[in-house]
């Protein structure tokens, strides 16, 4: 199994000379694509934090009718095929459809434009953030929030000074996961936005037009980028655990 995972990646990487890698990176089309991937991923993560973290808090703290459905819905994008997700998004945010018309009024266009990349990345990757943040919030004893309130903190102040800092590590890990998952999104992005090309779309484009040899350097660059993100994620996750009260394990 290990070989199965390792061999294709190693073979591909070794078949590309560093020189070729370097010249490929200098191509404007290539570095633009990589930059677009990274920045769109960041935007997707930003909106994920903005809307996903409050949702995660509500899911961790409150009971309401239909909560199980919402929980299931959050996990759904992980299991559906990405091209299906792209088509689904297109049928809401396409120019002729209600979502597209609504945002069109604000001057935001999704098809063939950067906002489309952002929502395509967000759709498939936001579950990672919401789930991680929810777990983080659930690990904070609600009675700790009550103590803060008895000491004079409003619910909002309690959230900012107690709950959020204690769940910070989970949220951060979730955000990194979401970002890296967003960058690697191909199917949904491909359906919504072919141009401008993000890195995975570019790799596919090179493969289609010029064949394997031309697609490989792009794929290797993509791989290196993902490994860098993955390593950052690991170091963050393996850092010193937040000091927890012994009360957590009575």
């Amino acid at each position: 199994m290990v070989l199965f995972l390792l061999l294709p990646l190693a073979t591909m990487t070794l078949s590309v000379s560093p020189k070729l890698l370097y010249t490929t990176l200098l191509e404007e089309e290539v570095w633009r694509a990589i930059l677009l991937s990274v920045s769109s991923g960041l935007w997707a993560t930003f909106f994920g934090l903005l809307f996903g973290v409050p949702l995660a808090y509500v899911l961790a703290r409150h009971r309401f009718p239909g909560k199980r459905i919402v929980n299931g819905l959050v996990d759904l994008p992980v299991v559906i095929p990405h091209t299906a997700a792209g088509i689904a998004l297109l049928s809401v945010f396409g120019r002729k459809f209600y979502g597209g018309k609504l945002f069109g009024l604000l001057g935001i266009n999704f098809v063939g434009a950067e906002p489309g990349i952002v929502i395509a990345m967000m759709f498939g990757s936001v579950p990672f953030l919401v789930n991680a943040a929810r777990d983080g919030f659930m690990a904070v004893d609600p009675r700790m929030e009550q103590v803060a309130q008895s000491l004079g903190a409003s619910p909002w102040k309690t959230f900012l000074t107690i709950t959020l800092p204690l769940a910070r590590r989970n949220i951060l890990t979730g955000a990194m996961l979401m970002w890296s998952r967003g960058i690697s999104e191909f199917g949904a992005v491909f359906i919504l936005v072919y141009h401008p090309m993000v890195a995975p779309v570019l790799a596919w484009n090179r493969f289609e037009t010029y064949g394997l040899d031309y697609a490989r350097p792009v794929a290797v660059l993509l791989l290196i980028m993902c490994i860098l993100v993955f390593l950052t994620l690991k170091t963050l996750g393996m850092g010193k655990p937040a000091p927890r009260s012994r009360a957590d394990t009575p």
Partner: peptide
């Protein structure tokens, strides 16, 4: 303005 102390302390760990 009421002080509350639990059996398991619940200090703010951060």
């Amino acid at each position: 303005n009421i002080g509350f102390v639990y059996q398991d302390y619940l200090l703010f760990p951060h």
